[in-house]
Amino acid sequence: MWKWLHPYAKGEATYRLLGAWLPWLAGSALVTLTVGLVWGMLFAPSDYQQGDSYRIIFIHVPSAMFSMGAYTAMAITALIALVWQIRTAEWAIAAIAPVGAVLTFIALFTGAVWGKPMWGTWWEWDARLTSQLILLFLYIGVLALYYAFTDARTGAKAASVLALVGVVNVPIIHFSVYWWNSLHQGATITKFEKPSMAPEMLIPLLISILGFALLTGALVCQRLRNEILKQEIHRPWVHAQLGVAEQER
């Protein structure tokens, strides 16, 4: 398997592979998000308890899911970077962290805006909300460490360690609503039980979740490509790739 994987540890091969994926990811993300959100906003019925305020769920749940998903992915690349010293894995940390931070911010913000009319407060220091806020700080900390050193590899190593240690927060966020009393409701979609949501609402939510997954992929692709270019800017393949005309011979 290493023989097959090894070329992708090199910048140029990864850059090309991501470039092949990017338009498909971005295009399908745009289509699925449009379908999911228009369906959710226009065609899904009102909730019998929450009225139309529940429509925030179509961005709140997917962004929260992938704020944790992105963190898990980042922790895995951090482990790979620390154990096998693969530079592409180090760069992936810098690519995933800003995307994850924005998703976390969206989850927190939409949650606050949904909480105000439903719970009567923008913010409450309970387990779910606090642990999600810690996730945002972890992302910011990883980014800060990554760029804090003049030697990029030292920064990447420090960021990897923090990313890896911080992964303990992900299950805490997930189970916080069961472990502690919380204003926040439990999971709407679970693997084993029937979802506690009518199909007219569940289907557009699932489409939005798929859309956010594709969007997360596309954004990470975009940023990882940039990071590869940045790190290998002196290499001839970058000069060829960025369409620099061979001027004035």
């Binding site: 925030i56 913000f109 939409t110 805006v113």
Partner: peptide
């Protein structure tokens, strides 16, 4: 206000 604020900021 709440719904459009959430969607707008996102």
């Amino acid at each position: 206000f709440y719904v459009w604020l959430a969607y707008g900021v996102t």
